[in-house]
Design a protein around this nucleic acid. Structure first.
Length: 835
RNA sequence: GGCGGAGUGGUGGAAUGGCAGACACGCUUGACUCAAAAUCAAGUAUCCGCAAGGGUGUGAGGGUUCAAGUCCCUCCUCCGCUACCA
């Protein structure tokens, strides 16, 4: 069959997709004789259709996967579906269809769309998290953790979304609003299930160090911020004239002598007993009410006017015995630290503002050496380092040293000591939703909460129920689900009707891919040890905190519970966060009408062009704006290669990339092409393999193609030239193969190769091919470009200097000046310094 | 406020301390065409100049260096995370 003279992607892409599937080219199994490489892209939610963001994400992953495979790695590259979640319920209500049906239909559609893009997945490992054979295992994890107290139930004020009728994790509240529907989040007292992620706070923070270099700095920074470790001291202030004490957390124990009042959150547990019976009790209660009713957002905003009220009670400074009035403050948060702040107005701006407003005392205890701060004239708090004063035995010590000494003193007095405070809270995994994995416990009137025995798993999500029209879960009303018997005493019992947060499923799916069809256990330990960790993970930065932190947490927990290998510390060695695909400067959305549908683009240009453009338009980390003319350019490039190939075909041999020999050196044009070919191989390998800069890799191939165009007429004339052409063309196809595999396969096959390019090895460039006889050297005078000369490659410094000084342009510019120095960078540049 | 990232032509973007603007998009001109598309060729940072050539130029200002987009200091702007966090 002869090659079409026109590039027609539609006629070749499907053919190759079928061939790859038939030959099972991308199926993989553990093989200890080869190094492994696990490439993973964040799996999609089956919302209905693939969008351009997916295409970008998965195209990056596919290039990495195909490239590593050519490098000889045993590559695992799987795909699956993050299939539980709210949109399925909304669709179920709207179309009166079961969420499962909707979800599986979407999966079928999106799988077909992914297949059209030609991604090299091992489809045998496909999984959907809503399948009982998947969620069964996380119900098992739940039971094991429950046994050891890693998962627990507690009643607490929760983030509640009235629109979604469910609680939200702290991570799912964005600026006080629900991350899904943007409704302001309310606080509601509920009994909920929590995962004790705080038990791992230290390790989660510490191990971020191990990810440096492999993860983007900003993601590491986000996780650090989120975990929010704060080192300081706990200081105990006994109450004055009565039993009891106030514990505070402070990062500035060195200022403890400067405490002039105490500020409690209105919600502080001690408040009730402190104010009971005071003559101004009514006023205080009014303040508490006022503050409590404030919107959570407003209360935490900068703009909040500081407000407070004196309780009438006092406590005592553990060092000085000074009587310290206890106030309530609207800016003190009950959730952070101990809900109580020791106020040092001279050295903390908030306390300063508060003290000024209410006319409270101010005591200077830190000041710069040789200076004297006067509380009556200070206009802001002194927060810089300094020397301790008015601090008894600590006077004259630097405040940094003072921090340690005060902590020691507190410890010996039994009034506190060093402590660490975390921002991270335990993870609430209860959801009052239907389309999620059931939590496997029952409630028995006799035995209380009883775990479902492991052999009874999975607790199936019923397929004969529908979310209620207002969005609420049908589970609490579904007798066939709720009513069961107690596994312990056999009496009637009721099932837990909350389901798990969908982030639970996505916290371990990457491990399940290593042995996705295992029915006898969640994992096969051998497969896990072989494949994990994921070598390259690729996805959107919007998951920088949520999904990535949870997955790290799960990895450590599953390791400690013996599911994962004991030496597995982190799930993802390397992370690439790709930018968004925008249109006209903003996110694509149906409401804006600026959606570019990948399917349309494939129909129009073919999958290879779409893949190429997504990779060429910008470096992967950056957002890029979809350009209709830009994709035309990518299409043009592939057409150009096709035409060039067809034109040169009669002169081409079926050779491998980088196969031309030194004999073609006799023909200068052939030698030059060979040099460019090898230089391109070096650059593309570096750009794809180490730098993940696919745009410059593609640019390098474009340059090689351009030089092929320029030299083709001369090269077809000689055997040496034809040898160089054949090799260079093979190189173009091989280098481009991870990016535009269909077209490359088609042309490769036309050359007479019987194997798929997928089985081809990544070409090896040779140092010897990069050697030139003459090298262009840049001439500078006083750092300014003044000319270029050709010098023999092995010219010495002295020769280069002599040639440079003899150059006409250089001579013109140093005319009348004295040459002070000549800097020679061999093979590159000569800079003449003269004045 | 703290932490992190980023500022380069008309646009997307290139540059291990060594020729700033690779590669593309767009635009201009020409060739082919009855015409258009496609393709091919030439040009395209900016200022002076017919040209040769020269000046300027990577957010601003300093510094280090023979040489700075790149390293250091001060500052400005934008983006992200976090935040009356004690």
């Amino acid at each position: 069959m002869t090659l079409s003279s026109r590039y027609d992607p539609q006629s070749i892409e499907e053919k190759w997709q079928k061939l790859w599937a038939e030959r099972r080219i991308f199926a993989c199994e553990p093989d200890s004789s080869r190094p492994k490489y696990y490439v993973l892209e964040m799996f999609p939610y089956p919302s209905g259709n693939i969008h351009m963001g997916h295409v970008r994400n998965y195209s990056i992953g596919d290039v990495v996967a195909r490239f590593r495979r050519m490098q000889g790695y045993n590559v695992l590259h799987p795909m699956g579906w993050d299939a539980f979640g709210l949109p399925a319920e909304n669709a179920a209500i709207k179309h009166n269809i079961h969420p499962a049906k909707w979800t599986y239909a979407n999966i079928d559609n999106m799988r077909a769309q992914l297949r059209r893009l030609g991604y090299s997945y091992d489809w045998r490992r496909e999984l959907a998290t809503c399948h009982p054979k998947y969620y069964k295992w996380e119900q098992l994890f739940f039971l094991r953790w429950l046994e050891k107290g890693l998962v627990y139930r507690k009643k607490a004020p929760q983030n509640w979304c009235p629109q979604c009728h469910t609680v939200l994790a702290n991570e799912q509240v964005e600026e006080g609003r629900c991350w899904r529907c943007d409704t302001p989040v309310e606080q509601k007292e509920l009994t909920q299930w929590f995962l004790r992620i705080t038990a791992y706070a230290d390790e989660l923070l510490e191990d971020l160090k191990k990810l440096e270099g492999g993860w983007p700095d900003r993601v590491l920074s986000m996780q650090r911020n989120w975990i929010g470790k704060s080192e300081g001291a706990e200081i105990v202030f006994p109450l004055d004239g009565r039993e009891g004490e106030i514990r505070v957390f402070s990062t500035r124990p060195d200022t403890v002598f400067g405490v002039t009042f105490m500020t409690l959150a209105p919600e502080h547990p001690l408040v009730e007993s402190l104010i009971a019976g005071r003559e101004n009790e009514g006023e205080i209660r009014a303040f508490i009410e006022r503050t409590r009713n404030m919107d959570r957002l407003d209360r935490q905003s900068d703009a909040l006017e500081k407000d407070g009220v004196f309780t009438g009670a006092y406590c005592l400074n553990p060092f000085t015995g000074r009587r310290i009035p206890i106030w309530l403050g609207n800016f003190v948060l009950a959730e952070y630290g101990t809900g109580a702040v020791m106020a040092v107005p001279a050295h903390d701006q908030r306390d300063f503002d508060f003290a000024r407003k209410f006319g409270l005392d101010m005591l200077v205890v830190i000041q710069a050496e040789g200076e004297r701060l006067d509380p009556s004239t200070m206009d802001k708090a002194w927060t810089e380092p300094g020397i301790m004063v008015n601090s008894g035995e600590f006077d004259g010590i630097s405040n940094e040293k003072g921090k340690e000494l005060v902590v020691k003193a507190l410890e010996s007095m039994g009034r506190g000591g060093k402590t660490v405070n975390w921002r991270l809270r335990d993870w609430n995994i209860s959801r009052q939703r239907f389309w999620g994995a059931p939590i496997p416990v029952v409630y028995c009137e006799e035995c209380g909460m009883v775990p479902v025995p492991e052999q009874e798993l999975p607790v199936l999500l019923p397929l004969d129920a529908q979310p209620l029209p207002d969005g609420r879960s049908p589970l609490p009303h579904l007798d066939s689900f709720v009513h069961t018997v107690c596994p312990r005493c056999g009496r009637p019992a009721k099932r837990e009707t909350d389901t798990m947060d969908t982030f639970v499923e996505s916290s371990w799916y990457f491990a399940r891919f290593t042995d996705a069809r295992n029915d006898s256990g969640a994992f096969d330990k051998k497969a896990l040890s072989y494949w994990l960790p994921v070598d390259q993970y690729i996805g959107g930065v919007e998951h920088a905190i949520l999904h990535l932190l949870y997955s790290r947490f799960f990895t450590k927990v599953l390791r400690d519970f013996g599911f994962y290998p004991a030496d597995l510390e982190e799930p993802f060695s390397n992370l690439l966060t790709q930018g968004m695909v925008l249109k006209d400067g903003s996110k694509m959305s149906k409401s804006k009408g600026n959606v570019v549908d990948p399917t349309d683009m494939i129909d129009r240009y073919g999958a290879d062009t779409v893949r190429l453009f997504c990779l060429f338009a910008a470096p992967p980390e950056r957002d890029f704006d979809w350009s209709d003319t830009g994709i035309e350019g990518s299409s043009r490039f592939l057409n150009r290669i096709w035409r060039l190939f067809v034109e040169l075909r009669p002169h081409l041999e079926a050779t491998a990339a980088c196969s031309s020999t030194e004999t073609c050196a006799a023909v200068p044009a052939a030698r030059e092409l060979r040099l460019r070919e090898h230089a391109t191989v070096r650059k593309v390998g570096e750009d794809i393999g180490n730098r993940y800069q696919f745009n410059t890799a593609i640019a390098a191939v474009m340059e090689l193609v351009n030089s092929l165009y320029l030299a083709k007429d001369e090269l077809t004339a000689s055997p040496e030239g034809r040898e160089a052409l054949s090799s260079a063309m093979a190189t173009v196809l091989t280098l481009l193969y991870p990016i535009t595999p269909h077209m490359c396969e088609e042309l490769w096959q036309d050359l007479g190769h019987s194997d798929s390019l997928a089985e081809e090895r990544w070409p090896q460039w040779q140092e010897s091919a990069l050697k030139r006889d003459m090298i262009t050297v840049v001439l500078q005078v006083n750092g300014k470009l003044r000319g270029k000369i050709e010098v023999p490659a092995e010219a010495s410094r002295e020769e280069a200097e002599k040639l440079a000084l003899g150059d006409e342009s250089v001579r013109r510019h140093i005319d009348g000046l004295t040459v002070r120095k000549v800097v020679v960078v061999p093979g590159k540049l000569v800079n003449v310094v003269a004045n």
